[in-house]
Amino acid sequence: MVRTGTGQGQSAVRPHAAIVGHASPRRPAAVVAAVLCALIGAGMAGASQGQSGNAAGAGDDAAPPRHVLPPLSDSLDVPIDGIEPEPATREQLLVRANVLNAARLAADYATLWEFRDLLTVAHVSREEFIEWSVENDPFVYDVAETQDVAVDGRWGWVRVRASIGMRRAPSIPPRTIERWERWIHVCGRWLPVSAKEQDNAPQAPAERDLALEPLLQARYDAWWKAVEARDWRTLYEMSDPLDREQVDFETFARARNQLTFFDHQVLWRNASSDSGIVRVRYLLRLNDPNMTKMHPVVSMVNERWVRRDGQWYHRLLGGAER
């Protein structure tokens, strides 16, 4: 059961992405986007008036209401629906990555502030960030080098080699790492994907099995067709056989019946070894007779898949990969 709050309650507020869109209505998307982009002093290209869950054709006399997704949103669960992807180049990302790494080395928090994610910028002032970081930044960079850069649409990846020590434990030797860092082009500039949003961005192409992704996409497309047709038997059979051992069909069908999906949009897919993720924006509604006036809401979901004997299966249950 999804939990809502007790008005201004604290511990009792347990929103769900599929619910809060109505219960705590989102501000007009373009407005939010404009505000957030303004906070980092950036322009906002392509902002549109996407309003989550509005029925298309509401003003048409004859057209029956049809629920469709609003325009493409940012896919990081940042409430900036309406920002369209903008042309972004590898060279621009390289410049930004080098500036970031130089700031890391110099502990230049004023510059590092320019690379904070939008939600941080919205809730913490530049001065607060600098003051806090000067006192509390746990890391010291001895090395921070850009080694490679990749770009795919609004997504970017930077291969970084860094040597990082613990500021308050100088006796611990610095740790040298090499990793792909995920970036997104938003509000007219490249920003690193924040730590809490890592799961909402695809891995770097070099870390993925790109050849498997078309098969994953095709499998998802077939899965969505079954969702649209409310063909629970097909969906069940496309589910991970190991999960099916724990969830019988009746339970599965009962759960599926609780939601109606109106529209979907695949944002990215990511296949790596035998694990796959398809990140999707859905427009959906709870089928609860006690909430007949609830508007459809946009929900971002990472649909997880597992490959067994060459076939992709949809994961029903969370937890560690098996």
């Binding site: 059961m1 999804v2 007790t6 347990r14 709870l286 006690n290 909430m291």
Partner: peptide, 11 residues
Amino acid sequence: LPTPMMQGLYH
């Protein structure tokens, strides 16, 4: 009486 899918629906 109703048994909604959403907890805390009734105030």
